[in-house]
Structures are given as C-alpha cells and as structure tokens.
C-alpha cells in the first residue's frame, strides 16, 4: 500500500503511449552487453559446439531473459528510480510508460525466453535461465535491495548465471569450469558496485537504499572492496592452475588482475569524502568492466588456441 502511494507521488501520469525505444530502454541494453558477452564466452569456451542457429538462439534467450529481469526490476523500483539522478530518466519514472505495460512486457519477455530456450536448446539451460530471472527479480530486487547492505553480494549471483547458461546450452551439463566462471562474476560484482556506490553514495542515501557506504561508511566499504578483490583474482587464475585452460588465459588473467589489485589497494588507502575527487573509485568502476570483458575474451581466445 505504502509502495503504491510512493509510486503515485513519484511518477507522472502517462497521457501518451510508450514509444518502441522506451521498451528497448526498459531492458537496460548497456547492462545486457556484458550479460550477452559473458554468456557467449561461456558457450564458446565449452568443449562441445552446437549448431550456429541454436547458439544464436541460446544467446538471444539469455539477452531476452536479462531484458525481462531489467524490465521487472524497473517495474518494482519505479519509486526508487524517480529519486536518483542516475535513473530518473528511465521510461517509468520519467512518465513515458505506465507500470502495467512494463509488467506485462517483463513477464511476457521472460516467459518467452525460457520457453524458447527449452524448446530450441535444452531444458537445463532453460531451467538455469528461469532461476536467474527469478533470482534477480525476487531475491535481489524484491527481497534484498531495500533490506540489507549485502544486497549486491548475494544479488550478484543473478549476473553470474550467463556463462553457466551458455555452457549448459552447448554441453547440456554444468561442470567445474562454468562454476568457476560463475564464482568469478559473483566475486567481481561487489568491488564493481561498491566502487560505483562510493561516488554516488548521496543518490543511494536519498533513495533510502542500504548500500554499504550508506550503512557502514566509506572506510569500511573501501576495505571490503580490497577484501573481495583477492578471492576474485584467485578464482580468475584458478582455471589455469587447475589445468582447465592454457597459459594464454592464465597469464592474461594475472596481467589483467594487477591493475585491479593496484586500484583496489589505492582505494583502501584513500580517505577522500568528496565524490568529485574520487578518481581511483571511478577508475576501478570503469576498469572492472574492461577486466571482465578482457578475462572472458581471453578465455575464448585460449580455447581457440587449444582447439
């Protein structure tokens, strides 16, 4: 009830029907890029290959599933998005789309993606895709985000599913390698998001979201970023150490991890409180995206060299 009242006060009335561009915006296409890329790399790094049309379908389903989760996330969080500068121009808080349309779009897109994956690819991939959508919407968005500063730690699992789905689509199995890729993204998510939340802390604070810098302070968040970086690097290098990849991936993982650790260490020593001067935090946020693209790209390159 309180949520509905917030929605009404936060969102303008919608006199016009939404444009097709607003439906695209509702799927968070920029976030989807990383999801599609890691899913594709999981599929390409698998020891078995599938027909290119089925591979394309699997990646399309991962993209549609991610789009569905993003749409349902925005449907539920319209009141929060309206309060933050970063998200206030999204279709729902800006009043370019009504909430019911977003809900129908999200549910329809998600159901279609899971159904298509199950019918065209395999049931295991469809099952994991369904779990990932439900995890993001129900566990992260509805349950954790407004309640605990550990929201993105546990919720990070939702973004870690794509390589697992890609691998399962190609092989029909879940093995150690995709589990390590899952763990890599799971451990990468906290440093990535906490770096962002350090320099947009006021936005989260204004919206009442209990992000770590808001609840535990800047110093504790900076320490946690460094603490999570070490196991993340260990997992990034693990596939090489366990003999699951070649030296190309292993050495790339080490080289790519050095700037990540250096930036995390620099942040842990910082006492800066003004977001305008939080350059290492901004650099880590930007580099963390490049890091994940680099690691997964080298994983595929390594697999192609082995093949």
């Amino acid at each position: 009830m309180a949520l509905d009242e917030n929605m009404n006060s936060a969102v303008q009335t919608t006199p016009l029907t939404a444009e097709w561009r607003d439906f695209i915006a509702l799927t968070k296409p920029r976030v989807m890029t990383l999801v599609v890329f890691t899913g594709l790399c999981g599929l390409l790094a698998a020891p078995q290959s599938i027909h290119p049309v089925l591979a394309f379908t699997a990646i399309l389903c991962i993209a549609l599933g991610a789009g569905s989760a993003a749409a349902l996330n925005q449907w539920y969080e319209t009141d929060l998005d309206a309060q933050m500068a970063r998200t206030s121009r999204r279709p729902l808080p800006a009043g370019r789309m009504d909430r019911q349309t977003a809900l129908h779009f999200g549910v329809g897109l998600g159901s279609f993606s899971v159904l298509l994956m199950g019918l065209a690819v395999n049931l295991l991939a469809a099952g994991i895709l369904a779990v990932s959508i439900l995890f993001y919407v129900l566990v992260y968005t509805v349950w954790l985000k407004r309640r605990t500063p550990q929201n993105i730690v546990i919720g990070g699992a939702a973004g870690a599913f794509p390589p697992l789905i890609g691998w399962a689509a190609a092989t029909g199995r879940v093995e150690l390698m995709p589990a390590l890729l899952f763990a890599l993204i799971f451990l990468w998510t906290p440093p990535h998001f906490w770096a962002l939340s350090l320099f947009i802390k006021s936005d989260y604070s204004k919206a009442g979201i209990p992000m770590l810098p808001v609840v535990a302070g800047l110093r504790h968040t900076r320490q946690q970023i460094l603490l999570y970086t070490f196991p993340m690097v260990a997992v990034a290098v693990a596939p090489w150490q366990l003999g699951l990849t070649g030296a190309l991936y292993g050495l790339s993982a080490i080289l790519l991890s050095i700037p990540f650790v250096a930036l995390a260490a620099q942040i842990s020593l910082s006492h800066e409180t003004d977001p305008a001067f939080m350059k290492p935090e901004r650099r880590l946020f930007a580099y963390s995206i490049l890091y994940l693209f680099g690691l997964f790209g080298m994983l595929v390159a390594d697999r192609l060299c082995w093949a």
């Binding site: 016009l16 029907t17 444009e19 027909h51 049309v53 089925l54 379908t57 399309l60 065209a120």
Partner: peptide, 26 residues
C-alpha cells in the same frame, strides 16, 4: 507512436518467423 510501435512489432514477428524456420531446419 502507435504506428511506430506497430511497425516495430511487425519487424519482430517477421524476425521470429525466420528464426523459428531456421531452428526447425537446424
């Protein structure tokens, strides 16, 4: 806006027809 949405929907449906045909063959 209704016209642009209708065109977008037509393109999506056409793409799905091609995709389902390709999946059936594969």
């Amino acid at each position: 806006r209704q016209k642009s949405r209708a065109i977008a929907m037509a393109l999506v449906l056409a793409a799905l027809v091609i995709l389902f045909y390709a999946i059936s063959i594969a």
